[in-house]
Computed example of a mutant assay.
Amino acid sequence: MIKLIGSRLANFFLCPLLVISLVGAVAQLRDDLINVSKTSFVLLVVVILLVYAFHFVPRPKIDLSKKLKTTVMACLFILTLGWQVLLVTTLSGTSGWDPSIIETAAVGGNNWLGEKYFSIYPNTFAMVAFETHLFRLLHGVTEEQFIMILNLINIPMLDIGWVLLTYSAHKLFNNKRVTFLTVIISWLMIVVSPYVAIFYSDITSFFLGTICLSLVAIFKVKSKMLV
């Protein structure tokens, strides 16, 4: 009875939030489609087609040996890691946007917004504190080297978060199709994206969020075992 009331209460608040989110997304859809790059649009179409094909098109059963599966996964992991390192080494640099403003403040430089930026966006204090302490710990590095190091930190956070997301999807839904779609979509949209070359709250939030989600999955499994 308590569980039923809790579910209905959650749905009572969830439905209006979903409607508001959908209305907001639809309102921005036209502008987003106009401003999106050709590469991003093609990638979005490919993801949609993959989801459609996986859901509706009958799939032949292919039995692969455990050794072959392990070899394929290892090769994909090495290729993904190599691609991420390539993105970081070629795209790392400064800009006029938030990540560079924070990095400049961390190394003791002046940014074009000055202290006003941190008055408007106080939520960035945690990023500034982390980067400042890291820069002092890495005594002697230049700003360019420091930015490269920050972006390299992105790689393990992104990959570990991806693994935790896959684990959570498997444990929470116990459905191979859901797990597979989670792996493919998150890999295409997040893991191999150029975001890995920008150290900011996006990847950090993804990493911390997947940790929390995996803890929920672990507690769910343990609660079932206790029952």
Results as ranks from 00 to 15, higher is better:
residue 213 L to T: 11
residue 192 V to H: 10
residue 165 L to F: 15
residue 115 E to A: 03
residue 138 L to G: 14
residue 209 G to D: 10
residue 98 D to V: 13
residue 192 V to K: 06
residue 215 L to C: 08
residue 114 G to F: 01
residue 16 P to F: 01
residue 44 L to N: 05
residue 152 L to V: 09
residue 189 M to K: 12
residue 128 V to F: 01
residue 60 P to W: 00
residue 194 P to D: 01
residue 140 G to K: 07
residue 141 V to M: 14
residue 38 K to C: 06
residue 4 L to E: 07
residue 226 L to I: 09
residue 161 G to V: 07
residue 132 T to Q: 15
residue 105 A to D: 06
residue 54 F to E: 02
residue 73 M to A: 12
residue 113 L to K: 05
residue 173 F to S: 12
residue 152 L to G: 03
residue 193 S to W: 00
residue 131 E to F: 01
residue 42 V to E: 07
residue 176 K to F: 14
residue 64 L to V: 12
residue 159 D to P: 13
residue 108 G to M: 04
residue 67 K to L: 13
residue 5 I to K: 06
residue 6 G to W: 01
residue 139 H to N: 11
residue 11 N to M: 05
residue 196 V to Q: 00
residue 117 Y to P: 06
residue 153 I to H: 15
residue 15 C to W: 02
residue 184 I to P: 07
residue 135 F to V: 13
residue 158 L to H: 01
residue 70 T to M: 12
residue 13 F to M: 15
residue 137 L to R: 13
residue 99 P to L: 04
residue 145 Q to A: 15
residue 92 S to V: 15
residue 77 F to M: 08
residue 17 L to W: 02
residue 142 T to I: 14
residue 26 V to G: 03
residue 28 Q to Y: 00
residue 215 L to T: 13
residue 107 V to W: 02
residue 37 S to M: 09
residue 118 F to K: 14
residue 17 L to H: 07
residue 185 I to L: 08
residue 177 R to G: 02
residue 211 I to E: 11
residue 156 P to C: 06
residue 164 L to N: 03
residue 33 L to D: 00
residue 189 M to S: 15
residue 140 G to M: 08
residue 162 W to G: 15
residue 97 W to C: 12
residue 90 T to C: 10
residue 40 S to V: 03
residue 164 L to Q: 03
residue 144 E to R: 02
residue 2 I to V: 06
residue 143 E to Y: 04
residue 165 L to V: 04
residue 28 Q to P: 05
residue 125 F to N: 02
residue 222 K to R: 11
residue 15 C to I: 11
residue 195 Y to Q: 04
residue 134 L to W: 04
residue 160 I to W: 00
residue 77 F to L: 14
residue 89 T to N: 10
residue 132 T to E: 02
residue 65 S to V: 05
residue 10 A to H: 08
residue 189 M to F: 03
residue 100 S to W: 01
residue 148 M to F: 13
residue 193 S to T: 14
residue 194 P to H: 00
residue 9 L to D: 14
residue 49 L to S: 05
residue 173 F to G: 08
residue 163 V to R: 04
residue 180 F to L: 12
residue 29 L to G: 08
residue 126 A to N: 01
residue 174 N to R: 07
residue 121 Y to L: 10
residue 152 L to F: 01
residue 117 Y to N: 14
residue 153 I to S: 12
residue 150 L to D: 02
